[in-house]
Each structure stands twice: as C-alpha cells, then as structure tokens.
C-alpha cells in the first residue's frame, strides 16, 4: 500500500507539472486529477478486495451465454 501511495504521489507531481506547462483550463485540471483519484481508489480496492473489481466476471456474465450460443462445443 505504501508503494502505491508513493507511486501515485509521483504520478500526481508529474501530472501537475504537465498541466501547468500546458496551461490547462480549470476543468481539464479537475478532470485529470479525478482520473488519478479514480486510479488510486481502484488500485487500493484491488489490493484489499480484488474480486470486487474484476471486470472479467461482469464480461463473462453478459457475453458468456451469447458466446455459448454462437460457439456450441
């Protein structure tokens, strides 16, 4: 978890630098930081409860039966 915090901290610093250099609008800054926040929240959730954030389960739930009909083994 500490590695995640340090890593995301570095990403945040670099992101701030890029936004300043590109003279980004307020909206762009808010959205960019929100993406970093989402990535951090996702990674933290993945660390503690990985089965909650596994999209393959949802993909299999939706598309598995359809594929089963198309490709009958």
């Amino acid at each position: 978890m500490s590695v995640l915090v340090i890593g995301m901290g570095l990403v945040l610093v670099y992101q701030t630098f890029l936004l300043r250099r590109g003279s980004a609008s307020r909206r762009d800054r808010v959205v960019a930081f929100a993406v970093t926040g989402f990535a951090f929240a996702f990674a933290a959730t993945a660390h503690y409860v990985p089965h909650w954030v596994n999209p393959n389960r949802a993909i299999e739930f939706v598309f598995g039966p359809i594929q089963g009909l198309i490709v009958r083994k």
């Binding site: 890593g7 990403v11 670099y14 992101q15 980004a24 960019a32 993406v35 989402f38 990535a39 990674a43």
Partner: peptide
C-alpha cells in the same frame, strides 16, 4: 496528463 494515471489503473 492522464497517461500515467491510466497506466497505474
């Protein structure tokens, strides 16, 4: 600006 954040994701 969102490249490395998405890389972490």
């Amino acid at each position: 600006p969102i490249t490395f954040s998405l890389a972490g994701f």
